[in-house]
Design a protein around this nucleic acid. Sequence first.
DNA 1: GAACAATAACCAAGCGCTTGCTTGCTTAAT
DNA 2: ATTAAGCAAGCAAGCGCTTGGTTATTGTTC
Lengths: 201, 201
Amino acid sequence: MPRRKSDTGLEPNRRAELLRAAAKLFVEKGFAATTTRDIAEAVGMRSGSPFYHFRSKQELLKAAMIEGLDAGHAQLVAAIESIADPEAKLRTLVRTHLGTLLEGDCRSPLLVSEARALDDKARTEIAAAFDRYQVPWQETLEALQQAGKLASAAPPVRLLLFGMLNWSSHWYRPDGTLSVDELADAAVAMLLHAPKNGKKP
Amino acid sequence: MPRRKSDTGLEPNRRAELLRAAAKLFVEKGFAATTTRDIAEAVGMRSGSPFYHFRSKQELLKAAMIEGLDAGHAQLVAAIESIADPEAKLRTLVRTHLGTLLEGDCRSPLLVSEARALDDKARTEIAAAFDRYQVPWQETLEALQQAGKLASAAPPVRLLLFGMLNWSSHWYRPDGTLSVDELADAAVAMLLHAPKNGKKP
DNA sequence: GAACAATAACCAAGCGCTTGCTTGCTTAAT
DNA sequence: ATTAAGCAAGCAAGCGCTTGGTTATTGTTC
């Protein structure tokens, strides 16, 4: 029973569907605690069918991470391409990143810690994807430093920033009083040490 | 074959030994990927013996988290009790926290994300232990705000700070060029927006 | 102070269940 | 006729945990 066009009019691309469901479950329950049956059930398949699209559970994780990170990277680049001011650029990067982190349903950057379940070769490929993801960040931070708005653009600064943002997925609740926009502002303010004497007007 | 005093002169407290080994393995491999046989083997027991000390694998995790957090809390309180200046206090909190995080071998604050494997009642108890852990932090942040060294001491500030620190366990390498002390300085500087015009000399 | 009972702290063995994955078959589209 | 995409069934390994015994230690009684 293949599902092509004009079946039920639903998603004809079951591979991508599997990837999204797997990523979501991996984030929610963790890689080891998610069974391949969970993933199959989430897309309405029988327990053995995902293995037609992916050779192993590990390969599913690897693909979810790399394709998710690359999609996020493309989103970042598209969001800042028409922005010149480094400060506005950073603000957009932060807001977009928090969007995929807290509002999306794949949230691939959070899977970084699950890479320990993979072998060395796969981890190397994931590290490369993560490096790509970090490029626009590092460029923006260096521009901010050159503009005198940032004391240092050394690697630890970028990593501490990622820490602030990524860890928020452990405590942020969308139904609380803090909006994602406010959270983005708070993070940017902490990094750029809040221009108290606002020079907007 | 009980092990009491004067057996081999080794650790007579096997319960604590189990807790430490379990915490270490849970941090390294994750809760679900760590088998009870792994834990038993790590302390030289047979596969069923840990269940004499703990009723279930979940209870082992719960005990490791709560007792680990409370030990860390005691360490924090002891470290800052003789310090008056809020800025020095914060610096000590950060350094001590990074110590248990990066140099210890239990690293209980990192297990927070594994609480999803437990039931509601256990999660409530763990949340209480985590609240206790955060008390000295919140107090110090408020003192800093009153001293005018911090723009805001609202909860998100504390949470973003924890993010910076805890996430460092994903990327920090002890054999790199960055020492834990330097990392602590960088984190504090980012929070207090780095007094560029140093007033040390 | 020797004999005995009680207990703490394990080990050896294994039970029932779940896991990732395979195999052979079926069916709709090409 | 071939292939893409799945299903039905199940296998071997590993999982958390239990059960029944074993042994060094500790208290108790005579």
